[in-house]
C-alpha cells in the first residue's frame, strides 16, 4: 500500500500559498478517482516564517495522519530556504527523493546547495512566471504545474479544470486566468537534471 502512495513535502515562507497548494492538489486528484490528503503544519504562521505543507496521493484510501518524514518529492517555493537549517528541506531525503525548486538557477547550479547525492532535481522560475502572468510574487500555483510535470498524477487539462472550479468562486476571473496560464507555463518550462 505504501508503495502506491506518493508523499510530497512543501517548504515555503508564510504567505506564499503552500497550504493552498498542498490541499488543492489533494482535492484535484479526486477527479482521477485517487485519494488525496493535504494539510499544512500549523504553527505561529507569519508572513515570511518557514512553513511546511504535506500532500499524499494514493490509489487506495490513505490511513496515516502523521507528518511526512521521508518524502518522495520535496517542493521548495522559496530557494532561500535551502540556506535555512530550521526549514530542514533535506531532512529525511536520499537519492530516491525528487526535489522541485522555485529558482532562476538551473538544476546543476543548485545541486551543491541541496547536497543530496544522486537525487533528481527539477527547477523552474515560478516567481517570475507568477509576476509575468498575474502580477504577484505568489509561486504556489505555478509550482503545482511544475509538480504535475515532475509527477504526472493527472492530465494538465483536468488539473486546470479542477483549478477553475475551485478558485472561480473566490477570486476574480483575471486572477484565475492568470494563474491558469502560469500553471501551464511552469508545467512546460520546468527542467530537470
Amino acid at each position: 500500500m505504501a508503495a502506491q502512495m506518493v508523499e510530497i513535502r512543501w517548504h515555503a515562507r508564510g504567505g506564499q500559498g503552500a497550504k493552498t497548494a498542498a490541499t488543492f492538489v489533494a482535492q484535484a486528484v479526486l477527479a482521477k478517482g485517487k485519494y488525496g490528503q493535504g494539510f499544512p503544519e500549523y504553527g505561529p504562521e507569519r508572513r515570511g516564517a518557514p512553513v511546511r505543507g504535506y500532500t499524499r496521493i494514493s490509489s487506495t484510501p490513505i490511513r496515516r495522519h502523521c507528518g511526512i518524514e521521508n518524502p518522495n518529492i520535496v517542493v521548495v517555493l522559496d530557494s532561500s530556504l535551502l540556506d535555512s537549517t530550521a526549514a530542514g528541506v533535506t531532512a529525511g531525503t536520499d537519492e530516491r527523493t525528487v526535489f522541485l525548486i522555485n529558482t532562476s538557477l538551473a538544476p546543476d547550479e543548485i545541486r551543491a546547495k541541496i547536497n543530496v547525492p544522486g537525487a533528481k532535481i527539477y527547477t523552474v522560475d515560478a516567481t517570475k512566471i507568477a509576476l509575468d502572468n498575474f502580477g504577484k510574487p505568489i509561486p504556489n500555483m505555478p509550482m503545482t504545474g511544475a509538480l504535475l510535470a515532475a509527477e504526472p498524477f493527472m492530465d494538465l487539462g483536468e488539473f486546470l479544470d479542477a483549478m477553475k472550479v475551485k478558485f472561480s468562486t473566490k477570486f476574480s476571473q483575471a486572477v484565475v486566468e492568470g494563474n491558469l496560464r502560469a500553471v501551464e507555463k511552469a508545467y512546460n518550462e520546468v527542467v530537470s537534471a
Binding site: 488525496g36 499544512p40 495522519h65
Partner: peptide
C-alpha cells in the same frame, strides 16, 4: 475528532 490533524486536513 483530532484538532488540526483531522479538523484541518483535506481528506477524501
Amino acid at each position: 475528532y483530532d484538532g488540526f490533524i483531522i479538523s484541518h486536513k483535506e481528506d477524501a
